[in-house]
Design a protein around this nucleic acid. Sequence first.
DNA 1: ATGCACCTTGTAGCCACTACAAGGTCAAGC
DNA 2: GCTTGACCTTGTAGTGGCTACAAGGTGCAT
Lengths: 131, 131
Amino acid sequence: MRIGEVARKTGVKAETIRFYERVGILTAPSRTRSNYRDYGPAEAARLIFIRRARDLGFSMPDIRELLELSEEDDRSCAEVDSLARAHLGQVERKIAALQVMRDELSRMIAKCEQDTISECRIIDTLAVRDR
Amino acid sequence: MRIGEVARKTGVKAETIRFYERVGILTAPSRTRSNYRDYGPAEAARLIFIRRARDLGFSMPDIRELLELSEEDDRSCAEVDSLARAHLGQVERKIAALQVMRDELSRMIAKCEQDTISECRIIDTLAVRDR
DNA sequence: ATGCACCTTGTAGCCACTACAAGGTCAAGC
DNA sequence: GCTTGACCTTGTAGTGGCTACAAGGTGCAT
C-alpha cells in the first residue's frame, strides 16, 4: 500500500504518518522502485492502534510505551493498566477544571444585561482583582 | 514597579509579561535609567484582566478583542456577551468530548483483569479496528 | 503528449508560553 | 572598594502534535 491508501484505511492523514515516522513512533517502511513508501497490514494495524489511543487522549510518550508493552506478549499488563488509569485521572481532572470554567463563564454571562461597556458585568468580572 | 513586583502582584510571570509585550497585547512600558521596565497600576490592572480571561480559557485573539471593547465605554456590550457565549459553547463541547473519552477509558480499564499482555483487554481495545 | 492524482523532501507555522544563555544593575554586608 | 546575590536585560530555541506549504518526481489514463 502507498501512503494515501493506508491513510484512507487507518484514518490517519498522510502528512501525519510521515510525521510519526520522523519522530520514530512508526518505523520507516520499505520503498517501491520509485521511492514511494510501501506499507503492509502490520503498519496499518499499528497506525490504527495509534489513532485509537490518540482519540482517547493518550500522549505520544504514553503511546510509545503502550506500543512497546504491547509487543511483550508474556508480560503482565499491570503497567498498561496503570498507564491507562493515570491517563483517566488526568482526563477527569481536566473535566473538573473545565466545569469550573463553565460555571464561572455561565455566572458571568448571566449577570450581563446588555448595557453599555461601562456597565458591562462581564468586563467587570474580568477586571476585578479578587475572585 | 519593576517586572518582578508586577509579576507578584498580578500572578503573571515576568517571562510571560515580556512575551505579552512582544506579541503586542501589552504596550511597552517606560524604562528606568538602567533600562528596567517600569510599570504603573494601569498596566497591572490590564495584566490582571488578561490573567482572569486566560484562566477562563479565552484565547489571545479573544482577549485582544475584549481589551479593545473594554476601552469603548459608551458602546453596547453585546459583542462582549457574544464572545463570552461563543467561548462558553466551546468549553461545553470540550467537556462533552472529554466525558466521552473518560467513559471509554473507564470501560476499557474495567475490562482489564491483569492478565499477561497477550490477553490484555486494554491493548485489545486499542488495536481493534471497529470500536 | 498531456493531464491529473499521487508521491517525495524540507521547512515553517500554529498556540501560549517556558527555558536557557550570557550579560548588566543595584543594594547590602564585609 | 569588593563581593555576593537578587534582580533585570536581550535573544533564541524548545514544547506537542500536527498542518501547510513549495518545488519537484512518478504512474496511469486519455
